[in-house]
Design a protein around this nucleic acid. Structure first.
Length: 824
RNA sequence: GGGCGCUUAGCUCAGCUGGCAAGAGCACAUCCCUUACAAGGAUGCGGUCGGGGGUUCGAGUCCCUCAGCGCCCACCA
């Protein structure tokens, strides 16, 4: 072995750049695709949303995954660890609209030479979908560069040659191919049905994107006209929907209203006759016990409408305003004219005035706070509108999905409950179509009848070899471009798939399912899905659904769920809250290894407080690694057999540590592995290094020094490898002083390497007692306010016979370390 | 309303199958320039393990119950 090349004054400065460049040049983390599935460990990386910005939470969870990737790599697996960018979807769309001053009109033709104006025009310029998508790509490419720089800086061991995006051609191909398969197997279907609708984004919303928010509202007691001139009072929070009312409902057992069921009431202001019906879902305790059923005030209305076969009286348009014409059954009237064109809030305010004037409002509105459904990215309460949408069957598969959830190994295990409560709570199939632009288009056209009507029941699909296609510009087989939107011709499906319809295919996209079956077979089903807990119902669930329907298997064997980063007030840290610090600033200040140390100390699934103090501790640890390594390597003499009882004891303890850290990593508990390694390392430095120092320098002859040197290099080699997944920069630096190759491609330590030299007779007690005695000597010196170098004439140890016997094996080491002349 | 998790020193957290006379780091105090390390080292102060019951020779660890915090889910009149 060549003499170690140890710097005079080791430092952390510059290590990140130095090793970042070297790893790139050497291809240290490059994936070797010639390996077979059993030798590969594949990770389904979460693609971060590039139109946002990376915050501390990202650094936290991506570090977790990276420690696991590095561990598996050292265990000899070829790690498939690509990075993806989620550039698909609404956040990018909104940014592009503002940035370039454009809006998308899917009806417009593609212009190949299109360039956006220098300044964003007002009003925005309408452009075709392909042109719009080009602008999205142009903008996100810049974001992706910034993200990559940060990830490299943090030391993620990603293969940067395998990056994918969720809007790129491969993602489009996989999404469209997957959809065509579902269409062929009957798992995808379209239907005109009431769905939750965001009036700002003007798109349908899936159950998984809902969020309840507490909002201020009010009960309004309204008088309906009953039979024979009587009055029926109801409570409603949405009086503006009175013209959409199709029935009143009471519970069948409610004696107060039993007699009324089957008769007819009359709506106030509009005088529309509506039946009084009975249904189990009507709650006698709520309001007056009679509810107004509208088209559609809430999801219960939809249930009543469906089960009681009520009429449809739509009054709310896709833009969230009261539509121009009254629905069938409602006469145009002054009251209607007052409401038409208004958004919901003003319409409500106005109708309350009208009801007050007509005397149909009983008392004043009573303010309440109640939960209302919102699109998680939206600002207005969702409406329920009927529209044509595409769905994927999920309700039919609940049992099977629950089985898959049980089959998946969750880390931590209790996260499975979230998956199960979500699957059990499903109430609609998965709605995948969105009336948006920046997404993967459905690979569909429809035949037009001779009258120009769209034949939705006759979708035209492309041959799989044509994918990806954009039906707004591409033409279905057997048609000519001129036949677009002409009677007897065809029209393109205007909708795009929801972002989750693509994100649910990240294993297929990253693994090149649609264009590289050989690669895909080597990486799928994958080993690990790392992700955050709040997207179990979306990303994890939808990925399981797609894998089940396409392959009949789980997409991965293990799911590692990261917690959140909490600020000191215990709130989730995020950009929107304005309390997140920039990751680059933290890396500049503390260094990547230190930031990683903090991140890796957060256990799987546990929300963790943001703590710069921990980063300082991490930095101290990295510096300690440099200095302790310098000590071990700088005056390294000849190595020999491990004979000293103290050395054997240390190696035995280290062997146990290796077993423990390995077991922790096998259970995805990187935090435990780090904590144990760190604990061992500090006592190794404080006690063992001090005790062995004199002997290593030759104080007890050549054999003693040779034993010490052997033990020291074994320990250092082992500790560096144990720390490598957490502190990749400093461990690589030290490794390079005396070893060939990268520590990150070195073999994960095995306890057998240490148990051999330690021998069967190793007694951990030797180190324990020696350290305890040394500690007592230090205490005496501290109390005496003496230097640690002060000479001790005589030290007397009183302890059990067993411990005294153990001490005897290291008596000389203890005397040297404590500068004790006589040890009794 | 249902479910899951958390509650251990001032702060951030370990404590896995019950044996702990309760641990670590930070902070704090005192001391020490010691040839691996002053962006350091040594030593120390600090806790009736959220409350109340129970099981056990023994409970921070298991069971019941209550409380607080957080999250997930749930048909919003």
């Amino acid at each position: 072995m060549p003499a170690p090349d140890v710097p005079e004054k080791p430092s952390l400065e510059g290590l990140e750049q130095k090793w970042g460049e070297r790893w790139e040049a050497d291809g240290t983390y490059r994936f070797d695709r010639t390996k077979s599935r059993t030798d590969i460990y594949s990770i389904d990386t979460p693609p971060p949303t590039v139109s946002g910005s990376l915050h501390v939470g990202h650094v936290f969870s991506y570090t977790h995954t990276d420690t696991v990737a590095r561990y598996r790599r050292m265990r000899g697996r070829e790690v498939f660890y690509p990075m993806g960018w989620d550039d698909n979807g609404l956040p990018t769309e909104r940014r592009v609209q503002n940035y370039f001053g454009v809006r998308c009109d899917p009806a417009l033709p593609y212009i190949a030479s299109f360039e956006p104006p220098d300044k964003p025009p007002s009003p925005p310029l309408a452009i075709s979908r392909p042109n719009f998508v080009e602008l999205c790509v142009r903008l996100t490419v810049e974001d992706e560069k910034t993200f990559e720089e940060l990830w490299r800086r943090l030391g993620l061991s990603v293969d940067w040659g395998m990056t994918y995006t969720t809007i790129g051609p491969e993602a489009q191909r996989a999404s469209q191919l997957g959809f065509l398969h579902l269409l062929a197997s009957g798992q995808a279907y379209q239907r005109v049905a009431p769905t939750l609708w965001d009036v700002d984004f003007q798109t349908a919303i899936a159950q998984a994107e809902l969020e309840d928010r507490e909002v201020a509202s009010a009960y309004h007691r309204i008088r309906f006209g009953g039979p024979d001139g009587s009055a029926i009072e109801i409570d409603t929070t949405r009086p503006e929907l009175i013209p959409a009312c199709v029935a009143l409902v009471a519970h069948p057992d409610d004696r107060r209203y039993k007699a009324l069921v089957g008769s007819t009431a009359r709506t106030p202001l509009f005088g529309v006759p509506v039946p009084i019906v009975a249904h189990e879902l009507a709650e006698p305790d709520k309001g007056t016990g009679v509810a107004m059923i509208c088209t559609f005030g809430d999801v219960t209305d939809v249930t009543w409408w469906r089960e009681l076969r009520l009429e449809t009286r739509t009054i709310v348009g896709r833009d969230g305003r009261v539509q121009a014409d009254p629905p069938a059954g409602v006469e145009r009237s002054p009251a209607w004219d007052e409401l038409t064109g208004k958004k919901m809030e003003p319409a409500r305010a106005r109708i309350v005035e009208l009801l007050r004037e007509s005397g149909d409002l009983i008392g004043d509105p009573r303010p309440i706070t109640h939960a209302v459904k919102f699109f998680e990215k939206g600002n207005k309460p969702l409406e329920i509108l009927s529209s044509r949408q595409w769905f994927i069957h999920t309700l039919d598969h609940q049992e099977r999905l629950l089985e898959r959830g049980a089959e998946l190994r969750w880390h931590p295990p209790y996260m499975r409950a979230r998956f199960e409560s979500w699957v059990n709570g499903l109430n609609t199939d998965w709605l995948i179509s969105r009336q948006r632009f920046f997404g993967v288009p459905f690979p569909l056209w429809y035949r037009l009848g001779d009258d120009g009507s769209v034949r939705y029941d006759e979708p035209l699909v492309p041959d799989e070899s044509r994918l990806p296609v954009d039906p707004s510009t591409d033409v279905p087989d057997g048609f000519a471009a001129e036949q677009r939107d002409q009677p007897g011709g065809f029209t393109g499906e205007p909708d795009v798939m929801d972002t989750w319809a693509t994100s649910s295919l990240t294993p297929q996209v990253a693994g090149h399912w649609a264009d590289d079956p050989d690669l895909f077979a080597r990486v799928f089903p994958m080993d690990l899905r790392p992700q955050a807990h709040e997207i179990i119902r979306t990303w994890l669930f939808s990925t399981v659904v797609r894998s089940e329907l396409e392959f009949g298997s789980l997409p991965w064997s293990d799911a590692a769920i990261s917690g959140w980063v909490l600020d000191p007030d215990r709130k989730k840290m995020s950009k929107s809250k304005g309390n997140a610090l920039t990751p680059i600033g933290l890396l500049d200040q503390h260094g990547a290894d230190a930031v990683r140390y903090w991140a890796a100390s957060g256990r799987p699934g546990v929300d963790t407080a943001f703590d710069e103090g921990q980063m300082k501790v991490g930095r101290r640890l990295a510096i300690k690694v440099l200095n302790a390594s310098k000590f071990v390597l700088s005056r390294l003499g000849p190595e020999g057999d491990v004979t000293a009882p103290l050395d054997k004891a240390m190696l035995a303890g280290l062997a146990s540590l290796v077993d423990e850290a390995t077991a922790a990593f096998e259970g995805y508990d990187y935090a435990r592995a780090l904590e144990r390694a760190e604990g061992f390392f500090w006592s190794f430095c404080d006690d063992y290094l001090e005790l062995v120092k004199g002997r290593a320098y030759g104080g007890q002859g050549e054999a003693g020094a040779a034993s010490a040197n052997r033990a020291l290099t074994l320990a250092l080699s082992t500790l560096l490898r144990l720390f490598a997944p957490f502190l990749p920069f400093v461990t690589e630096e030290v490794w390079s002083w005396w070893k060939e190759g990268s520590v990150h491609r070195a073999t994960w330590p095995a306890s057998a390497e240490l148990r051999g030299p330690a021998g069967n007779e190793a007694q951990p007690l030797v180190l324990e007692v020696a350290a305890a005695v040394l500690g007592e000597v230090r205490k005496a010196k501290t109390v005496a306010q003496a230097s640690m170098r002060a000479e001790v004439a005589r030290a007397v140890v009183r302890d059990s016979a067993e411990r005294l016997a153990a001490l005897a094996g290291a008596a000389h080491d203890v005397r040297d370390a404590g500068r004790i002349a006589e040890l009794v």
